[in-house]
Computed example of a mutant assay.
Amino acid sequence: MLIRLNVLEAIRSGDVTLAFRRWRRPTVKAGGMLRTAVGVLAVVSVEPVALRRITAKDARQAGYRTLSELTAFLAGREGDVYRVELRFVGEDPRVSLRESVPDVAEFGEIRDRLRRMDERSRRGPWTLTVLRLIAENPGVRAPALAARLGLETRPFKADVRKLKDLGLTESLEVGYRLSARGRAVVG
């Protein structure tokens, strides 16, 4: 679920508590968590709603000035309208993780996790290749990096997310870079 940065900041402050989306089927579930640029959000509820039942108050709670502004956002999109209640729950734990340099024991654990990820991959070892590619090309868009490996963008991004979950990479406005933790692992 994509959310604009200004809306994320308003969710963090508690000024925004709702989002409305048109989906063929929801991309988030009640009880789920979203890691975002401002921290972790809880998905409190996800409910289909008739467009005519959305109020001006709902629109303001979703960060829109008026109901017509919200309905204009939803117009022209396909799918059913869903009302999503969101709540900020805290900082993204990957932020502090990526800033910490692993000690000897952690370094071994990280290497073991990377080895297991490589072993489970249908295309063979990839983790260190992707980490080195990002190290050599910070700020380069994912499609360009994926192409260098002969991959489609979507599976490449999924791989980078796995590395990000270990605190080894971080997303930039455009592209990625290795975190302090990632630089220590790549050496």
Rank of each mutant, 00 (worst) to 15 (best):
Glu78Ser: 14
Thr17Cys: 03
Val7His: 11
Ser96Lys: 14
Phe20Trp: 06
Val81Glu: 02
Met33Asp: 07
Arg53Met: 07
Ser13Arg: 15
Val38Thr: 14
Val16Ser: 10
Arg83Ser: 02
Arg53Pro: 00
Arg98His: 04
Glu106Tyr: 04
Arg122Val: 12
Val84Ser: 03
Arg12Gly: 10
Leu18Gln: 02
Gly76Ala: 08
Thr127Val: 07
Arg12Lys: 15
Gly90Leu: 01
Ile11Thr: 05
Phe20Asp: 04
Ala105Gln: 12
Thr129Ile: 13
Tyr82Ala: 02
Val44Met: 01
Lys57Cys: 02
Glu69His: 13
Thr36Ser: 15
Glu106Cys: 02
Gly32Arg: 03
Arg83Asn: 03
Val81Asp: 03
Pro26Ser: 10
Tyr82Trp: 08
Met117Cys: 10
Ala72Lys: 14
Lys57Thr: 14
Ala75Gln: 13
Leu74His: 08
Arg12Pro: 13
Arg120Tyr: 09
Glu69Gln: 14
Asp103His: 06
Ala59Gly: 10
Tyr64Gly: 08
Arg94Ile: 09
Leu41Val: 06
Ala62Thr: 09
Pro48Lys: 05
Glu109Ala: 14
Arg53Val: 01
Met33Gly: 01
Val44Lys: 00
Val16Thr: 11
Val38Tyr: 07
Gly76Ile: 08
Thr129Asn: 10
Pro26Asn: 03
Gly32Asn: 06
Asp92Trp: 04
Val101Lys: 10
Val44Trp: 01
Leu74Cys: 03
Tyr82Ile: 02
Arg87Lys: 15
Val28Ser: 08
Val49His: 04
Val46Glu: 01
Pro93Tyr: 08
Glu106Ala: 08
